[in-house]
Write a protein that binds this DNA or RNA. Structure first.
Length: 270
DNA sequence: CCGGACGCCTGAGGGC
DNA sequence: TGCCCTCAGGCGTCCG
């Protein structure tokens, strides 16, 4: 599941392949990927060039000549660059045919991903982007602190709430709790100012480290497409043995999500 | 208004 | 070997 660092890697990789290319036509093989009117989406975007690709949280933001559309990869969304005569994969759902004979193909096994047109000038002020909180790397204490400190929900769940921090998914939420030495069930209102300051710092550091690791794959993509799922070093997520104390990792469910933690290294409930 | 439950999907994996 | 059932998981929506 691509989280902020993977989406950032996809963004950088994609820019190398599609910048300044012009969309000739769009094939929509599975319409539900597109939020809003499909015909409008297609007719608006054709004949426009891709000027830039931006990102906010886990959203990719495609800036065209006169319009902007956003793309969320959800669980398994990925992009491929192929020549137009190459056969489609069964999970290629949206095909952007470029005027230079290449295709930008959106592939998504589970069909959870979404694309939609947004207002070119003010897209950050409208849904869904205006519902997002702050990216950990740019988060301010004044914004984050009350949202954590006034909640009785477990910190793991709060880390996944995109209206507080945006960009953190299940994997990095587990990793952040681990590096904090914090039990993921710890209630938000039990964290002190100092610990929340530390939480912002740790979250930012972990995402930056992951982006740096993804940087090594920036100029290439393999047969699986541009999905940003480079090899990140995980300390606790999906592990069986703790990377620190070598004790057993425990798996529990918090808010319906698989949560891995080390009962020895993450005892602190505050 | 807050938060829990559900729906959207498919393939992997377990049970038999 | 193969079929069927269950389930993960981000996020929008529904509902209590």
């Amino acid at each position: 599941m691509p989280e902020l660092p993977e989406v950032e890697t996809v963004r950088r990789t994609l820019k190398n392949f599609v910048l300044h290319k012009t969309i000739d036509s769009i094939e929509v093989r599975y319409p539900r990927i597109i939020d809003g009117d499909v015909e409008t989406f297609v007719s608006t975007l054709i004949h426009q060039s891709i000027c830039d690709i931006d990102r906010y949280g886990k959203y990719l933001i495609f800036i065209l000549d006169h319009d902007v559309f956003i793309s969320h990869l959800r669980m398994e969304g990925k992009y491929n660059i192929k020549m137009k005569d190459e056969p489609y994969d069964k999970h290629d759902h949206i095909i952007f045919h470029m005027t230079d004979g290449t295709d930008l193909r959106y592939n998504d096994t589970r069909k959870f991903g979404r694309m939609q047109l947004v207002d070119k000038e003010h897209y950050r002020e409208y849904p869904p982007l205006n519902r997002l909180g702050q990216e950990p790397m740019e988060a301010s204490f004044d914004y984050i602190y009350p949202r954590i400190h006034q909640s009785h929900l477990p910190i793991k769940q709060l880390l996944l709430d995109q209206s507080i921090f945006t960009g953190i998914g299940n994997i990095y939420a587990n990793e952040i709790c681990f590096r904090m030495g914090m039990d993921p069930r710890t209630r938000g209102d039990r964290l002190s100012k100092k610990r929340i300051l530390e939480l912002i710092e740790v979250s930012s550091t972990i995402l930056k480290e992951a982006i740096a690791q993804g940087g090594t794959t920036i100029h290439s993509f393999d047969a699986n497409g541009i999905h940003g799922l480079f090899q990140v070093t995980l300390s606790v997520h999906a592990q069986t043995t703790c990377s620190k104390c070598k004790g057993p990792i425990k798996k529990i469910t918090i808010a319906g999500r698989g949560t891995y933690y080390c009962p020895h290294c993450q005892k602190r409930r505050y």
